[in-house]
Amino acid sequence: MPEAAAPGHSRREAAVIYASKFIKDGDVVLVGQGLPVLAALFAKNHHARDCVIMHEYGVVDLDPPRAVELAHPLLAETATYLCDMLDALTSLLSRADCAFLGAAQVDRYGNVNTTTIGDYFRPKVRISGSGGANDIGSIVRKSVIIMDGQERAKFPERVDYNMTPGYFRGSRSDRDRLGLPGKGPEAVVTDVGVYRFAPKTGEMYLSGLQPGATVEEAREKTGWRLKVAKGAAGVKPPTAEETNLLRSLDPRKVYLR
């Protein structure tokens, strides 16, 4: 994959920093596995000191000095509230402002798959399954999806397995009809671009480009005829200060491998 990064930061770093800006100071954020962990930690140490980060297994308001794996005991050591999963994924989740989730596949209408690639009953690859992702995507007010290494197979017309519904086959109102409490994904941030969803159909479109990326590249790495917002241009690249802060938060390169 071409790494046309602007000097001083990789595209992955730019994506994480951009995504972190979706967290506002004071927000309560449910954070899933992978890059979301780092994006939330960056927000907390940069522009959202008073955001409340929580993980689904019962760790609330954590503030670790460095990035570690999701289940690392260090996270709970820094928390202000510990509870169980039933609490975290119901009463707390329904009061959160947003969630940050990772994805192995996300499709045209924001449906997410991290379960199996290929036929579900004879999968080519077993990935991980839902964990709490389905629950979070179903219930939380809104979600932001972070994907590392966008490519065509990971951005298909339709996911191989609809693990966490977005806007189904192109209708935001399907969520209401089915009784899903959350409003669905707000944005997808990848190493290539920033994508948002059309008001009625919930179709994903390109709204901004990561530094160094082009519309052609975004189209090439998307499995459907990608629509592009008028005036979609490069998003603001991270500053040197931001990049340095991000790197200092992951000194052991748990996420910035």
């Binding site: 994924l89 579900y120 397995y161 693990m163 519904p165 399907d174 009784g179 409490p181």
Partner: peptide
Amino acid sequence: RSLRGSDIER
């Protein structure tokens, strides 16, 4: 209220 409409349900 979870699982609704997903392939986990189907």
